[in-house]
Nucleic acid binder design. Structure first.
Lengths: 152, 152
DNA sequence: TTTATATATTTGTCATACTAACAATAAGTA
DNA sequence: TACTTATTGTTAGTATGACAAATATATAAA
């Protein structure tokens, strides 16, 4: 593999991930959608699987638990989600998408899909499969937990 | 293209980029290398092309200017770089890798290469070329400046 | 029942990403 | 020269990411 700095996958990955997030955020802002890319990821996911607790949702969306707490704080402040107490386990909350939250997901989804497709111009279904395979392989190569599981 | 959260390239990209950075940082910390991944990227690059000004270096390493200012502040505090005044243009500094900086690049490079290869297990040269092509395509699709250039 | 351990969430700290506003300097122009 | 515009870099504010530590509650063990 080439060892030149700018040929390294880590630089390319970081740069591209940032570009995608940055582009999406600018499009959100241009439409006056008062939400960040990471916040969107979460409410979009809540629309599919509502009423999970924070830990589960954090894991699903790939966020650190402290980071997740803070993002939910902001979503609650915006009225898009709420924390529901569970009487049978008072350690955890269920994160619930409010009616406003559901409305926003419906309202904003088409634009989000359009933005997502924009990045994929000139690429094929096969490219997607390859990308997914390569990224998943890298992820697994570095994931301590998965490595442990595989050794069992 | 699939629309599920876990099948979106943006999620995969973000997740993988973070995993790579996180893994590298943990390995740095384990070796007591007092440096972050982003700081390393910059001194590694300075070792090839020393004495550029901040704007040029920020562009090369893909950082925005405010972020770059802060990273250079930290690198200078650690004695790895220094800002040199240019008499003919007093707006900008040349960023200079100190002797300690050069020493650290030499000292740490082998471990960094090892860490980089770790993520690439089970992948081929062809995978690398594909990944690079796909990521570059996504980047170009979203890059306003390049788009403008291409239209000329 | 008391103690120990595990789970869920929060708080604090540092680093980075991005935006906006600002200061200093340089370069172009009337 | 004086005015305007562009460039370079900094600072401040908000959001996120990673990690360590604290808090509250639940569960298991002695």
């Amino acid at each position: 593999m080439a060892t030149e700095l700018f040929s390294t996958y880590s630089y390319l990955l970081d740069r591209t991930a940032r570009k995608v997030k940055q582009y999406a955020q600018r499009r959100f802002n241009a439409e006056n959608y008062d939400i960040t890319v990471d916040q969107w990821l979460i409410i979009k996911n809540l629309n599919n699987t509502n009423d999970l607790n924070q830990s589960q949702l954090a894991d699903i969306t790939g966020k650190d638990h402290p980071t997740f707490t803070r993002i939910i704080d902001l979503l609650c402040k915006k009225g898009l989600t709420e924390r529901k107490i569970q009487p049978n386990d008072r350690r955890c909350f269920l994160i619930h998408l409010t009616n406003l939250g559901k409305q926003r997901v419906l309202e904003w989804s088409p634009k989000m899909a359009e933005i997502r497709m924009k990045a994929w111009q000139n690429l094929t279904e096969k490219d997607y499969k390859n990308l997914k395979r390569i990224l998943d392989t890298i992820y697994m190569n570095l994931d301590e937990h998965e490595k442990f599981i595989n050794e069992l």
